[in-house]
Design a protein around this nucleic acid. Sequence first.
RNA 1: GCGGAUGUAGCUCAAUGGCAGAGCACCUGACUGUGGCUCAGGUGGUUGUGGGUUCGAGACCCAUCAUCCGCCCCA
Length: 425
Amino acid sequence: MKTTVQTVKGVREFYPETMSLRNYLYEKVRSASRSFGYQEWDGPFIETIDLYAAKSGEELVKKQSFVFEDRGGDLVTLRPELTPSLARMIAAKQGQLTFPVRWWSFGPFWRYEQPQKGRTREFFQWNIDMVGADSPEADAEMIAIAATFLRSVGLDPTRVSIFVNDRSLMTSQFDRLDVSVEKRVDASNLIDRRSKMKPDAWEAYGLEMGLSQRQIDGLKQVLEDYNLWKQSDNLQRVFAALDALGVREYIKFDPAVMRGLLYYTSTVFEAFDLTGSVRRSILGGGRYDNLLEDVGGDSLPATGFAMGDVVIGIVLQEAGLVPDFEPSPAQVLVTVFDKNLWVQSLSLASELRQAGLNVMVYPEPVKLPKQFKFADKMKMRVAMVLGPDEVEKDLVVVKNLGTGDQLQVKREAVLESIKGILKNA
RNA sequence: GCGGAUGUAGCUCAAUGGCAGAGCACCUGACUGUGGCUCAGGUGGUUGUGGGUUCGAGACCCAUCAUCCGCCCCA
């Protein structure tokens, strides 16, 4: 094996085939976002560490960020998330923006973590947020956008679900069970881990963090109560809106959905693949009404979610929903017969391009079998030959690579002939 | 940060401690103006790297690097 310089750990290289999946995701994300009227935006890819110190989790800032010193001696961070940049940008133009702001973005992020299935150190993430509206119906809109996206990539409700909960509902349950304010985070953590642990171990873990047996039993009851949402006005309105938005079949209430982020205040949700091998969430988000105030802006309610490209990519692959890769953007190859006739091929190609076709000219006057083989591998649809016989009579051979049929066509009729072939197959 | 597995041809993988192989891909020819299909032939290796054990190591031992999988964490 040749020695090559290795890539940085946890990054991916986008060969054309994977690049096309990335672009496909971008297109679907873009159209789902735009169909609800969201504007595209982006923040800087590098930020100061201070931006994240304000509100992001400690783990994220201290352990999972790429931080380094620039040439001027300042500490800079490759952005691990977008929300703090969003909050700052909105706060900076608070007086000039038209609220509610509906913004979406799809860009690269970096987190220094251990790479494994569904997790890389460099990834792309769709962020979409609405700032300045505090209704449950706004939360429902975010969830509906997520469902619209999932539907648009061919994932139906038998395959994926969006699990919805309300943090404030859980807080009221904690209060009912006399879980102290200090223990709420622990209790949330415990709930989060329910699906990952065996029942005995889960209970032992709960006792260990200082909850009583009565509280643990109470939590168990809460987690099994799939009608609990009826006690929440917020969730009742969210679900009613989702019904009207036509995506109710994607939605399930799940009291176990908590989300790790501390800044969520009420509605929270996460989408999962129900049948595949990835147990990580496809996307997740919720309402975060205090964040803008926390980073120094005016108090503004906000709701939104994020989706990384890695998990959804695996899910689509496993579901057989990755669109066929088209190796060449050109559908037409103009072969080069020999050195002398080369210019004939070049000028024909140029004419066809001016007529709007994507056209490739073989870059060497090698023998025709090799050129045809190339066209075949690149899955091109039409090949053209300009040999001595054709050039003499002002003709061009137009070959349909799908059927193998070929015709000698008058030079001025070539465009029509090609269009006919492209239209049919 | 912790644990498990795996590194052999471009790719997917074989090889009881005893000649490093197959399929696919690639190249050539059958087919000197035409791809796919078929057939025949061919190129391709410091077995991740460094040490050790052994008459002999792809295999066993140690180290190291990388990748994958899990834990932690998940914004």
